[in-house]
Design a protein around this nucleic acid. Structure first.
Lengths: 212, 212, 212, 212
DNA sequence: GATGAATGAGCTTTCATTCAT
DNA sequence: TATGAATGAAAGCTCATTCAT
């Protein structure tokens, strides 16, 4: 019986997170009312506060849940490749595709959440860091393999992340280009050239990622 | 008389904007209270509402004023150069230096304001656009001069802007690198290589920009 | 005009205090809702918070206003007498009469307010102190005049105050005795005997105090 | 079986009362949360509501339990004396000592609980009444023995109780005097004189009461 | 008997905006 | 023009109480 109610509690927690994601996504963090989240989750305000200590905690839990999902997917895609050059392509592809498939989510995480407060900002920056670290690791692997010369891989990874971030951001906010994937070849070439990698053909299997 | 009071009104308007900048900068958009802006401007809440219809309008006016200042300075720096290669350096330098000299302002414009609401977001994106256009124009000039091959200069400029943006953002939020200018050589090389430009020496006169 | 609005503001402040007194008196501190105080004061909740920073501040202002009124009246009654023995009678009489004429107020100050929180409790104890000091001063005057022997006048005054307090409290809460004044002769004799004063006749003019 | 579970139920009830006393004592009635009482009693909120209908009932049960304990002890101390004069001393001593040994309990019963609501207030007043009746009975015995003249013994007992109450209250809230017992000789003399009793030496065996 | 998830009315407080003076 | 008192909708959060398991 304990496990039964625990299971229900966990399910309710997930339902709250789902509802919160929906409300945060449409209203932004600040204008999302606990009342509305409660209604969307088909529970009461008290129910929210039973599962989470406050509004911010819900948002942080969301960041954690979604960030971890993204990272796991990206790391899986990267470790599936052995060639350092292809690893970089895989990392870029998975990040771009993930965002491309979740536009309002992208808007929430890339735009709305930054101006919210120090704790949330830090949590988001930690997520940025993890993505940057992922890119930097791929760069380091290529350097170790001799494919790339030595460089400040963290700074370069930061710049790469920023370049991707801005392209994705504009797409999320303005809808241009209509398909985010259309920007991929240009961006890929630009980034690869920026570190002296040959541009060559992109052999990533796009289809594999389409529904990521 | 009329012109005298008009001048006084304009002066009061400027004083309000100065006060608003100070308060927005320290508190962020949302936590900036009209009361505090009024106090800082040595006027009353009613006075604020005489000169501006609402809080958002003050912020938009600020964006406009500061954005125009930045852009004018940047365009002056660019048109002072005739060589397309140097123009690109000048563009990068002036953007980086402007942010570097106004850290809290950077935080306000790059971070806090985005999640505030659609109107402000659009105004900020228009500013981004103007900076991106500046970069794209420099790229186009280089293409026209034959220094660069044809390319999607707008998308590349977007990526460049994003790369700079992220580096500046991390500096603004975490203080790394201690001097934003330290990141410049690496970023410059990275960006130039990304379009196939020779890296070469940076001949921009740093001193000219220091107080920008 | 400034003085006009200032006067109105002061009047509104007083109206709020009157309303708060009424609501606190009927509901007790904790169950008094700001909504109800606002309604009773014919203003808005925001209006309350314009004049007072929070609920507690309203209560403290009430304590201050009423306590000062009581003290001033008591001191006037005492200084009107020159004979130390009569001063003591005057002090007792004015305290007893004041409470007797404001039963619900008495309940508010002697009962409801104590369990409210440290700040309010301290404010109330400071008021107790002032009354005790008043009694102790009268005792000291009698000691100086040779009417009383030396004694720990502060502790005795505390005990006197406590005796009066309890009698008043029971009257306030249970309505016994029907007229608080009926307890006066017995209490007076008891207190006077407790310090060795002759009981004698009470020559205080009751009528003078009746409407205090 | 039935009696076994009844015993367990009674034990659980006592554990809840112990826990409630601890929490009420540290937090005051209003700020004591059922959650915390449940945790302290090592049970659940539902468990609380199985044994008591609501929060108030717990408090009332506490008042009853503690009041009965106090009264039984006091009556034992009094009936142990046969001399009416000593009985009065014994009554005063046991009341003062009981409070002196339970400072936070005193605060709870004398201060926090009064402003809580009519039912609890009445229960507390009934306790006051029982203490006052105890004193009044001792006075009556002295009157019957011819040691004291006829008087309104209930009113006098009320005043005595109030005097003690205030002295104890100040000690409970301000810590003066450091040892409550230090106030005893003065208070005793004051009270005895107030009814015309000779002050004489206090022959109560203090040690017997120390751990009351 | 015991549990703890769920409820929901209720609270204090904030603040952009209005408008009589 | 300028003031600042007044507004009122809305927010986040608490907690005694209930009840399905």
């Amino acid at each position: 019986m304990a496990s039964g109610s625990q299971a229900r509690a966990r399910a309710r927690r997930e339902r709250i997170l789902d509802a919160a994601l929906a409300v945060f996504t449409t209203r932004g963090y600040h204008d999302a009312a606990m009342d509305e989240i409660a209604a969307e989750a088909a529970t009461s305000k008290g129910g929210l506060y039973f599962h989470f200590p406050n509004k911010q905690a819900i948002f942080l839990a969301l960041i954690d849940r979604l960030g971890t999902q993204l990272l796991e997917r990206a790391e899986a895609a990267i470790t599936a490749e052995t060639d350092p050059g292809r690893q970089l392509d895989a990392a870029l592809t998975v990040v771009l595709h993930t965002f491309a498939n979740h536009r309002s989510l992208t808007r929430l995480f890339l735009v709305d959440a930054l101006g919210t407060g120090p704790e949330i900002r830090q949590a988001l920056l930690r997520m940025h860091d993890r993505v940057i670290a992922l890119i930097a690791r791929s760069l380091d692997a290529a350097i170790a393999a001799g494919t790339l010369p030595a460089m400040d891989s963290w700074l370069i990874a930061t710049a790469w992340f920023g370049a991707l971030h801005e392209v994705v951001l504009r797409w999320a906010l303005t809808g241009e280009p209509a398909r985010l994937e259309d920007a991929y070849p240009t961006i890929r070439a630009c980034l690869r050239r920026s570190v002296g990698l040959p541009v060559g053909p992109d052999e990533t299997n796009d289809e594999r990622q389409r529904n990521a």
